[in-house]
Nucleic acid binder design. Structure first.
Length: 341
DNA sequence: GGCATTTGACCCGT
DNA sequence: ACGGGTCAAATGCC
């Protein structure tokens, strides 16, 4: 009997194979007259590859096999079409709902410069709700990616003014972006339009009310982001484009080379830099903008051959945190590997 | 007309 | 029952 190979297994195997191949390349480069930058780049890639693998294991990716289903969720959350809702198993919908909420990240946004400095996390958000939270002075606003309708992107975020520091806003990201990254042009257009509208609203608002009770605050307007409150409990890795592997045996390919080809390194390595706000004053809410992965990816390595080495297709998967987490300090429990594999 | 926001109502988990 | 999260109609802006 052949054990079913889940896609998470394939990702892990892919990543390990990637590391192996990179190590071999590094071995070749040690003897050749290649530049130190090349070797350093390879080392970085190898380390990141294995760190990703270990991270996946530590975060229990192999245990979970659910993939959020946008359509089902859409129906499940519908408050009108009850007949259609009843056609779907409530139990199934319940499961989908639970897995959808696993990924949570929190960043702290401080509107230090008031309302002038637009903060853009690189995505276009649409507000879909606001709720007074028990025990909190300020209401919580709910945003979802504007690509939800067009591309079924499930990323959402919550913005709430901090009780302790009213000048600070806590932004919680949930879900991951499955949409294509917004283009600078479209983002700029939307921003311009929204900023104009928001500016007018605030002008009217300030004339009528005291400024503190407004939560029409837009996260783009903040200029400082703190990531010390990052909550990565239940972090779920972004989905990656997987090359179909077929029915290869896991054990045969665990350290083989046949699976190399589609890496999800880029999904992690892609720095989260807003196309709309390249201003250095703006900080994208990625807790790891400066981590080694992004740095390695951004490095202007002189060797063009690295393009052939790392030939991962660009993933359309993005997360507000760039899908990048710094796991460098994580411990790896070997028993976990064997228990899950 | 299209899109975003507002807000009361509704749904679901605890 | 309560609170958090979401929906969708109403409204406004471009």
């Amino acid at each position: 009997m052949e054990r079913p190979v889940h896609w998470e297994h394939k990702i892990l195997i892919n990543e390990l194979n990637q590391g192996k191949k990179l190590a071999k390349l590094l071995q070749n480069h040690l003897n050749a007259a290649s530049s130190p930058e090349t070797r350093e780049f390879l080392v970085e890639k190898i380390l990141s590859s294995y760190e990703k693998s270990l991270s996946m294991l530590n975060w229990g990716v192999l245990v979970n096999h659910h993939i959020p289903n946008a359509n089902l969720l859409e129906v499940q959350r519908s408050g009108v079409n009850n007949s259609l809702r009843n056609e779907i198993s409530s139990e199934e919908a319940f499961k989908k709902r639970k897995v959808e909420q696993r990924w949570t990240e929190q960043v702290k946004v401080c509107s230090g410069k008031g309302l002038e400095g637009p903060f853009d996390d690189g995505y276009s958000w649409r507000k879909y709700g606001q709720k007074d939270i028990l025990g909190s002075k300020y209401p919580r606003a709910y945003y979802r990616c504007t690509c939800r309708r067009s591309q079924g992107c499930l990323a959402i975020k919550q913005v709430q003014r901090s009780d302790e520091d009213p000048a600070a806003f806590e932004v919680t990201y949930r879900g991951r972006h499955t949409c294509s990254h917004v283009t600078p042009s479209s983002s700029a257009v939307n921003d311009s339009r929204r900023q104009t509208k928001l500016f007018r609203q605030r002008q009217e608002h300030q004339q009528r009310q005291q400024p503190d009770d407004e939560l029409s605050f837009d996260v783009r307007e903040a200029v400082e982001v703190k990531t010390d409150d990052l909550d990565i409990n239940g972090y779920i890795f972004p989905s990656f484009p997987l090359t179909p592997i077929g029915n290869e045996n896991v054990e045969e390919n665990f350290f083989g080379e046949s699976l190399i080809g589609t890496s999800f390194l880029d999904s992690f390595s892609r720095p989260f830099v807003s196309p709309a706000t390249s201003d250095s004053n703006h900080f994208s809410p990625s807790p790891n903008n400066l981590n080694n992965f992004g740095a390695a990816h951004n490095a202007q390595t002189p060797e063009s051959d690295l393009n052939d080495i790392i030939s991962a297709p660009a993933s359309a998967t993005n997360s507000p945190i760039g899908g990048d987490l710094n796991f460098s300090n994580m411990d790896f429990d070997p028993s976990f590997l064997f228990e899950n594999l």
